[in-house]
Every structure is written in structure tokens, then in C-alpha cells.
């Protein structure tokens, strides 16, 4: 059983929901990331989604685009992110770590080399935004052989047929993107999400994390009431962007936000 499956099983047994923060590796500078990951775990994060910076983040809104640009200005690419994962694992052997990004860095490294490197870094899951299940066969097989979960996105307009496809090829959990749009956009409609979750659950028993539009403790609580996990990204990265002259303040605000979410979710 992978670390992700174990984690979601434990949470289920204790009646809790997963808090899943997303941050872009290397934002605002490379040394900031690994200590932040540890502090996020201490603040109550169950799973970490670590963003691999990409020059052309087509599915991301301005906040995460700028995070990528800041990280890339320090030359943080896939290799550097894998080395951060190794560093993180030195002192945390239990928290699942998911790499989230775009396909091209993996294509250029080569699927097999990437799968080997991800295994060496003891990464638990890979979420590739622009790799739909139809094109994922080779990559998924190589990751699965190494015990690494491939996590797929679901959208508001995803059909039952496609949910079944994700169920077949995906593992670990599914990430439901609750809005049509890019990351960091718009407002969350809990009733819509609830309705969609029923369709998703009718077609898969994989845990479902919900993201896009989770901004504060209140939205986290609402989502936690209906989903298996709550993903928060742009709201955290906004703290980095608002405190570029004082990254420690950014870290302080990120941790405070995560703690308030954890508390609200556990009520």
C-alpha cells in the first residue's frame, strides 16, 4: 500500500479529512521550500503537493504563474525539485509527497529516467496537469511498477465515462478541480461540488480531494464536510507574493492559515 493509500485510510478511520497544501518549489527562493514543507506538516498538512515550476503553465492563473517565474529565476527545474524531495524525506518518512506540474519536463528527462528518479527521491504521487488518461499509459505503468501513484484531475464537465477511465488508470486519490477556469479564480459553490461528488463517487471509490477556490478556514470547512481532502494553493502562494521583502512573514502567514483550516476542518 502506498503512503497515499495508507494516509487516506488512516484519515477515514479517524473520521478526518486530508488537508493538502500546494506550493511551488523554489518560490520565492530555493532554500525557502524544504523548511516550509516541514512546518506545513507540523501545522496539520496530511499530504503535500509540490509544484514543479514550468515556463508555460497553461492551466494556472496569474498567482501560480508568477510563483513559477520566481522559482525559474533561480533555475529551479525538475531535477532541483527532486533533490528537494530527497532532502524533505531525510527527516519525514511518513507524509505523502506529490509532485504536480506539466508533462514537458518529464518528457525531456524521459519517462523511465523520471520514474527512477522519483523512486529514488521516495516521491509518492505524480500529478501531471496536461497528461490525460488516454495518453498516460506508458508513464503510469512505469510509475506503478515503482509504487508511485499517478493522480488525475477531474473537472466540473467530466463525464461519468471519463471518471471511470481515471478510476482505472489513476491511484492514490483524484483531484477534483471545482471550477471551470485556471487556478486562483472565482468562488466556490459548495452545492455544485456536492452534486458533482455524488457522480464521482458513483463511479470510483478513490478518495477525492477538492481544490480551486479554497481561500480560508470557512471554505476549507465546507469542502471538508463533503470531500475526502481539501487542496489549497493560490491562497498560500498569495502570502508569499504579498511578502516578497519578508519571506519569514510569508511563512508565518501560510502556517497561520493552514492551522486555521485544520482547526475548522476538525471541528
Amino acid at each position: 500500500m502506498s503512503r497515499l493509500s495508507t494516509k487516506f485510510a488512516e484519515l477515514k478511520a479517524s473520521g478526518r479529512k486530508a488537508l493538502i497544501p500546494f506550493i511551488t518549489a523554489g518560490d520565492p527562493y530555493p532554500e525557502f521550500t524544504v523548511p516550509l514543507l516541514h512546518e506545513m506538516v507540523a501545522a496539520g498538512a496530511d499530504v503535500i503537493e509540490l509544484g514543479v515550476p514550468f515556463s508555460d503553465p497553461m492551466a494556472d492563473g496569474p498567482v501560480i504563474q508568477r510563483a513559477s517565474e520566481r522559482a525559474l529565476s533561480h533555475h529551479v527545474g525538475l531535477r532541483k525539485v527532486l533533490s528537494m524531495a530527497i532532502e524533505f524525506r531525510k527527516t519525514d518518512q511518513t507524509t505523502p509527497l506529490v509532485l504536480m506540474g506539466y508533462l514537458n519536463p518529464i518528457e525531456i528527462m524521459g519517462y523511465e529516467d523520471f520514474a527512477n528518479a522519483a523512486q529514488r527521491a521516495d516521491v509518492d504521487g505524480v500529478l501531471t496537469v496536461d497528461l490525460p488518461p488516454e495518453e498516460s499509459e506508458n508513464c503510469v505503468a512505469l510509475l506503478r511498477e515503482r509504487g508511485i501513484d499517478q493522480i488525475f484531475l477531474l473537472a466540473p464537465n467530466t463525464t461519468a465515462e471519463r471518471i471511470q477511465k481515471m478510476h482505472q488508470v489513476g491511484s492514490g486519490y483524484l483531484y477534483y478541480v471545482s471550477l471551470k477556469g485556471v487556478t486562483g479564480a472565482g468562488h466556490l459553490d459548495t452545492a455544485d461540488v456536492d452534486q458533482k461528488l455524488q457522480l464521482i463517487r458513483a463511479n470510483t471509490d478513490l478518495p477525492v480531494g477538492v481544490g480551486f477556490g479554497v481561500k480560508d478556514a470557512e471554505t476549507a470547512q465546507k469542502i471538508a464536510a463533503i470531500a475526502d481532502g481539501v487542496v489549497v494553493g493560490s491562497a498560500l502562494i498569495s502570502k508569499i507574493e504579498a511578502n516578497l521583502d519578508d519571506p519569514q512573514q510569508a511563512k508565518h502567514e501560510i502556517i497561520a492559515l493552514l492551522k486555521s483550516m485544520r482547526q475548522a476542518m476538525d471541528v
Binding site: S55, G77, N104, P105, E107, I108, M109, D130
Partner: peptide, 18 residues
């Protein structure tokens, strides 16, 4: 590599950045 929805020849560095 892969960019803008298709696999094709690209100008990318060793990290896959365009």
C-alpha cells in the same frame, strides 16, 4: 517534447523549460 496540447519538436532546455 510536449507543449500546447501536442507532442512535437520544441526548443526546450535540459529541465524541459521552454
Amino acid at each position: 517534447g510536449v507543449l500546447h496540447g501536442n507532442r512535437t519538436y520544441l526548443m526546450a532546455d535540459d529541465d524541459g523549460e521552454i
